[in-house]
Design a protein around this nucleic acid. Structure first.
Lengths: 160, 160
DNA sequence: CCCATATCATAAGCAGGCTTATGATATCCG
DNA sequence: CGGATATCATAAGCCTGCTTATGATATGGG
């Protein structure tokens, strides 16, 4: 009976996250933006002056994905791309005043959502869940790493 | 200190799910398919003979999304669209033998993944996490419902 | 029976993720 | 110093979601 329980959790995790993402997206749309753009704005508030590659690294997505998000954010005048004086290939990213105002708004929403979806859940359960998820994240990262290492070994073999 | 804990959990949830989805996708690719297609195949094995609208309903996505997934699955000869004898608008969906073989393979993988990512996690923690996630899902669904109702009320108001 | 309405599948077009490839610069090593 | 290598941003093209709209067919009420 152990296996189905674990399997059940992986399903439930993806399902709950899907619902939460959809809900956050809905709330984001009410403010004229999207979840992905929200992520960019939030990150930029914490660390202004990043270049696109560094931002992509922080958000754990590919630089090309961030580039297109920035195209839209720049069009909406929420973010500014300033040429990096030390590297003519790169831009440094800054929030505009509008961008800063929006992200402050969204921050309030974020807190609201967390309160809503965890209303009435015991603190102990929240802590346990947090720990379990953190553990899972770690295992997944490890697993991914192992598979990469294995892949490299296989490539080396077939080259030989 | 309560607010940050809840907020932290919403972040961790989305993050862990993202990692898990990426990992599952990686495993799916090793079998020449994708997570979304896997979902379709899995559902079809459980309930063969659905039409596209019913399948979309089961998977909780829009019919158009399922339609395109099926285009690719049909091309790969994993799924068959058979005309519905009772409704000339609709197709009934069936797995091909290849499709059935693949989904059996993937089922093994699913169990492997669940074991890997929850290796060493206490059963009690798994149960608590499962309950918490289920609770969150319910709250999100409720919240979404409330917002819809509110929206309808606003529309009725502005119509009056 | 027939017309209004609902439902099935699909098209068009946007968002946001990916891989792979490319041009422009930086950087590092011989 | 100068050429190989690495890095920054972007292009092209794929996948999978979405909304909105449309054509074909079913269905139910008058």
């Amino acid at each position: 009976m152990k296996r189905p329980l674990k399997r059940e959790l992986t399903f439930q995790l993806v399902e709950t996250a899907r619902l939460l993402r959809a809900y956050v997206d809905q709330r984001a749309h009410q403010h004229g933006t999207t979840r992905a753009q929200w992520g960019v704005l939030g990150r930029l508030r914490r660390q202004e002056g990043l270049n696109q590659a560094a931002l992509a690294e922080q958000l754990d997505v590919q630089p090309i994905s961030v580039g297109r998000l920035l195209d839209r954010l720049e069009q909406q005048k929420l973010v500014e791309r300033r040429p990096d004086p030390n590297d003519r290939r790169a831009y440094l990213l800054h929030l505009t005043p509008d961008g800063r105002a929006l992200v402050d708004d969204l921050d309030t929403v974020r807190g609201e959502i967390a309160g809503e979806v965890l209303d009435g859940v015991e603190e102990a359960a929240i802590i346990t869940t947090l720990e379990t998820l953190a553990m899972m994240s770690e295992r997944i990262r490890l697993q991914k790493q192992e598979r990469l290492t294995q892949l490299a070994a296989n490539l080396a073999d077939s080259a030989a």
